[in-house]
Simulated assay, not measured.
Amino acid sequence: MNQSVGEKIFCPHCGDYITPKIERTATPTGELIIEYYCPRHGLIKTEKKKNYGGNPAKIPGGLYIALEGIDGSGKTTQASLLYEYLTNKGYSVIVVREPWVQAIKEVLYKYNLDVEAEVYLFAADRIILQREIVLPALSEGKIVISDRTLYASLAYQSSRGADQDFIRRVNKFVKPPDIVFLLDIPVEKAMERLRNRSSLTRFEDPTYMYRVREKYLKLAEEEKDKFIVLDASGTIEEVHKQFINKIEEILQNLKANKT
């Protein structure tokens, strides 16, 4: 979800024009939901958009993009902004987020599970998500933006002691992403954002997050051809510009390879 402040619109409850808070959320069906909130009266207007005009551009085999990083790095916000950018360029795009299945998510966040149980649950959730949403979309030539993928398990669960080879074996039926954007941010900065946003989950312990960040950076070093590391400590706009620069390079390379 991406939040911003927009131009003035009429609020029927106030009887006057107000400056609304705007929330944009990309959905798995390829829509962009835009909600306008009055500071006094809450939600006053909702729009649903498909940002592309005419027939959306397709990429043979699709393009599977992962956004990874510790909690508080801004993945969800940047996923929505990237969705807007790519749909405005004429591509058919969907956004998904792990964990996907609500029942699995509730178990993961409610109970203090053994790390092996976490690995299996995340893998089961991932397989369901891919077979229901991701793989069909890729087969249709769409771009799939995923807020977390297999690499989240390789960073988070291995930081709790799970062997990475074990994690990969459990996820052997999972398709890895084509590109991984790692939103790297110092833990202290991420914790500032998290404390301002909501109550913390058990996955958002600073000591744990230090280990997770180290795991992510090591994965990026080991798989340089797949990972693109971005500095996520700046403003939303600054990080988005980094995305645009890199995604344009990727799209140009895809076009060059096609010709």
Rank of each mutant, 00 (worst) to 15 (best):
250 I>F: 00
220 A>W: 10
142 K>A: 01
75 K>H: 02
54 G>Y: 03
15 G>D: 14
121 L>S: 09
107 V>D: 00
204 E>A: 12
2 N>W: 14
64 Y>C: 02
222 E>W: 06
229 V>S: 09
24 R>F: 01
197 R>N: 03
118 E>A: 04
194 L>F: 13
63 L>R: 02
234 G>C: 07
65 I>T: 01
2 N>M: 08
104 I>F: 14
134 V>G: 05
129 L>W: 09
64 Y>T: 05
13 H>E: 15
236 I>T: 12
175 K>G: 00
214 E>H: 11
80 S>H: 07
18 I>E: 08
191 M>P: 11
54 G>P: 03
223 E>I: 06
43 L>T: 05
133 I>F: 01
237 E>F: 09
249 E>P: 00
82 L>V: 07
81 L>H: 06
101 V>S: 06
97 R>V: 03
70 I>P: 04
197 R>A: 12
3 Q>S: 14
231 D>N: 15
158 S>P: 10
22 I>S: 05
147 D>H: 04
177 P>K: 01
97 R>H: 09
79 A>D: 07
152 A>G: 15
94 I>P: 03
183 L>G: 07
66 A>W: 04
167 I>V: 14
149 T>V: 03
228 I>D: 02
76 T>F: 03
167 I>L: 08
53 G>I: 11
102 Q>E: 14
161 G>K: 04
48 K>S: 15
8 K>W: 08
162 A>W: 02
153 S>Q: 06
250 I>P: 00
215 K>I: 08
177 P>H: 01
213 R>L: 10
66 A>G: 09
174 V>Y: 06
127 I>L: 15
20 P>V: 04
90 G>T: 06
144 V>P: 01
194 L>V: 11
187 V>R: 10
100 W>Y: 14
101 V>N: 10
200 L>Y: 11
